[in-house]
């Protein structure tokens, strides 16, 4: 919670975002007035018959039923990690485990947010921790500001390129790139 998921979807979407915000009763955990309790939905239109549909889902484990619904249908995922959280690397690793199948088909990019407030751990430390647990996994890791359309587009484009290379060349193609 607090990584900027709703903000990121709003930055990227070309339609009015469908939001499911509720009053946040965990202000002691993350001090923000509302939190997403189902999903945020936005779209980017690519052509008359192609669009990217973006679903932002809450990170709190109590909403893991939403993860189960979306992870079977999603092509890829931008995993936003709040660097100001108590243990952001552990959080990333837990999500990689929960979305293992998506990660192993090259469908994940990690975006580390709030690094201007909490510069540690660095993206290098995230990458090393990931490589220790999943040495065979290639996951791009960025610091980013979810409010920045440019930075979010960069993360999304990286994800799309990764997925397309997998589709075209298989796993080896991605690792050579």
């Amino acid at each position: 919670m607090g990584a900027g998921m709703t903000t990121a979807i709003k930055a990227l979407s070309e339609i009015e975002v469908v939001s499911t915000e509720a009053n946040n009763s965990e202000r002691d955990v993350v001090d923000k007035p509302t939190t997403t309790v189902a999903l945020d939905y936005g779209e980017i239109v690519l052509s008359n018959d192609e669009k990217i549909r973006m679903y932002g889902i809450p990170g709190q484990r109590r909403f893991d039923f939403m993860w189960a619904i979306l992870k079977t249908r999603a092509e890829g995922m931008v995993l936003l990690v709040n660097n100001d959280a108590e243990n952001p690397i552990a959080e990333m690793l837990a999500f990689v485990e929960d979305f293992r199948e998506l990660c192993y088909k090259g469908g994940v990019v990690v975006g580390v947010s709030r690094s201007e407030i909490a510069p540690q751990p660095t993206t290098g430390e995230f990458a090393r921790a990931l490589a220790e647990v999943h040495p065979e996994l290639t996951v791009p890791i960025f610091t980013l500001d979810p409010r920045s359309k440019d930075q979010m587009q960069m993360a999304l484009l990286t994800l799309i390129v990764n997925l397309e290379m997998r589709e075209t060349f298989g796993e080896a193609g991605v690792q050579q790139a």
């Binding site: 469908v18 939001s19 499911t20 915000e21 509720a22 309790v37 189902a38 999903l39 109590r62 909403f63 039923f65 939403m66």
Partner: peptide, 21 residues
């Protein structure tokens, strides 16, 4: 119970979003 509470809050928010839409 806690799991049902989370699902119920998601349903509530989605129904609000549909009504808004």
């Amino acid at each position: 119970g806690p799991r049902f509470a989370s699902m119920a809050s998601s349903m509530q928010a989605l129904s609000d979003a549909v009504a808004h839409e």
